[in-house]
Structure formats: structure tokens, C-alpha cells
Amino acid sequence: MAKKDVNITINGKEYSSKVEPRLLLVHFIRDVAGLTGTHVGCDTSNCGACTVVLDGKAVKSCTVLAVQADNKRITTVEGLARNGKLHPVQEAFVDKHGLQCGYCTSGMLMTSFWLLQKNHNPTEKEIREALSGNLCRCTGYENIVKAVKEAAKEISAEQNKDLVREEPIEA
């Protein structure tokens, strides 16, 4: 079986490798790129622990072949923080205790990150619907939903602050 050359940009960095076509994207991310923040949970397309953002959309990386992601851009949990500062969605999960064991957390964060990019002010129903493909066996979801709401507030406040900052300083 012929191996395939793939080139995948993960968190802005290109990773090239010759891979078996049957290699799953999650294994490319963990084993080839060495980014182990993305977890393998159920491995049956149910739990969402392996969620990454592929070309702007959250997907389950255990149900995508690495070759399908050739020449595409991916964001993993390692790509959320900027210059050592956690992303607002990460801050909110810490503040609101949106995790216990942490196994599902990177997937929860990536789906939340994707949701907040397309919908800056989601309702509780929209948050729960968006997270319906991510399972958590610890929290009962309450604090995860609170964290996403908090992150939404934080992000809009942050954006407003930027708008203020863009005002000319000198009149």
C-alpha cells in the first residue's frame, strides 16, 4: 500500500510526513507532530475528546484520515494561548471550574472556541447544542456551560476594549 506525502499546518506550523493512508488525523497530531493535547477518548466518533478545528470548523480528529487533511489548516488546544496568555475560553474554564479530570477538556475547549468564533453571544441552548458531540463524565456539564457563557462575555469585552484602544490618543 503506497504511502502518501501529506503537509498539514497545525497552529501555524507546517508538518510534512509520508504516512499510511489509514493513519487517523488524531494520530498524526499526537505522534507525528508530537502535540499530545488532543486526546483519543472513545475512538468511535462519540465523545469528542479528539476535537480540533479543521479549516475553521470543529471536527472529530479520530474520524478524519490524515490524508484528508492534506494542505489544510488545523488548530489544536496548543494553538489557543497567545504569547503565554491563555485564551479567554481557557481562562473561563479555569474560573468556572469547567473541568475535573480534564480528559474531555481539550475537546470541550476546541468546540467552544469554534462556537464563539461563529456566534459571539450564544444562548444556553445554543451552547448545549454545540457541545452535544462532546461528552464529559465528571462535571454534569453545568460548569462547562457557565464557562462558555463567561468566555463569551470576556471575548466581547475584550473586543470592545480593542475598539476603544483604536481611538486616536491625541485629539
Binding site: 466518533s45 469528542g48 476535537t51 479543521l54 470548523k57 470543529a58 471536527v59 472529530k60 474520524t63 478524519v64 468546540t111 447544542e129 454545540a130 452535544s132 458531540g133 462532546n134
Partner: peptide, 9 residues
């Protein structure tokens, strides 16, 4: 259908 992540792919 399934969940939003599956529907994205």
C-alpha cells in the same frame, strides 16, 4: 443528524 462536529465533516 448526529452532532455538530460530525455535521461539519
Amino acid at each position: 443528524i448526529a452532532d455538530p462536529l460530525i455535521r461539519n465533516m
